[in-house]
Design a binder for these strands. Structure first.
Lengths: 166, 166
DNA sequence: GCACTTTCTGCATATTTATACAATTTTTTT
DNA sequence: AAAAAAATTGTATAAATATGCAGAAAGTGC
């Protein structure tokens, strides 16, 4: 339980500010009342799919844009739920909005479900484009997403639950 | 001039296969007739915006998905072939799946071909959306992609309804 | 409760990556 | 072409990150 909180806090911290090393992240965590060692952090970051990327200004920063496959394992759907803010249909496609910086992790989570209905997803910073396969209605995709992230529909206020095929 | 060649080769190598450390990259480079030290590589990777990301299987790999989009030319098609895992048609669009972290490099390659048939591409982490021009059929796009990346069709089990993700 | 299994974590350390500095090469200016 | 300035590189090393291992904690079933 302590671990889940730590992972969430790490994500939040990384999404919120430039953090250039695990040592610094360690201090921020400590400031948030969470204490662990650099070794644990290294493992957490791998699990979250977080990577250290050049920030374009001669230094480095951590980023969530990696391949966070582990999101898929074990009940982190709660986690997913909390970052999705809106679902919109457009042009036979589905657009999912998340809180900033979380599109990739969420998209990867969806990809990883390997549902037939979904041809693929593309994620930016806070937007995911879900591309259904031919012959799949948006309603089917909705159902499918609900399977992947249970509780999704209830979570969303602004989405359009009544969908129709294209 | 030696450096430019080295940067290009690094991009090509990283786009084409999983490389997990600078030491390994160093050896590959040496195999390609380019010789330098790890220190130089570290600097090159920063300049290219390359980052080391968790590969989702407990290890790490280098990826071009970082900030620094270096405008260099095309990778080798051989390498491109090895990262594409699936092609699916959907909603009049084409979705190409790659191994994680390689969508950008592949998309860039496709963009660079400047084929008329393709209006543009959008790439996430492991998914590329290929948008055909108006009036262009998916079959034409297929042919076009085959021209850009010869051997593509043979490589891929196309997204027919019976296809399963691997 | 207890035994058993699995997951998690810190410690110490190995591995990997980044950088200060000096030397060299390339480019620019005169 | 020489001088000056800027960029590139290797060496050695610092800094940062990953991991084997053993113990701790958390979960499972009885």
């Amino acid at each position: 339980m302590q671990k889940v909180l730590r992972l969430l806090t790490i994500e939040k911290l990384i999404a919120g500010e430039k953090i250039s090393s695990q040592e610094i992240l360690l201090k921020k965590l400590r400031g948030a009342g969470i204490k662990c060692t650099q070794a644990t952090l290294s493992r957490d970051l791998r699990q979250l799919g977080v990577s250290r990327i050049p920030d374009g200004e001669g230094s480095y920063m951590y980023s969530l844009t990696g391949t966070g496959r582990s999101q898929h394992e074990r009940g982190s759907t709660v986690n997913m739920l909390s970052v999705v803010s809106e679902i919109v249909e457009a042009k036979g496609l589905m657009v999912i909005r998340t809180i900033p910086g979380h599109a990739n992790a969420t998209a990867y989570f969806i990809d990883n479900s390997r549902r037939y209905e979904i041809a693929g997803t593309i994620a930016g910073d806070d937007t995911i484009l879900v591309i259904p396969r031919n012959g799949i209605s948006l309603k089917q995709v909705h159902t499918c997403l609900e399977l992947i992230i249970p509780g999704l529909h209830n979570q969303i206020r602004n989405g359009s639950p009544e969908t129709r095929a294209v």
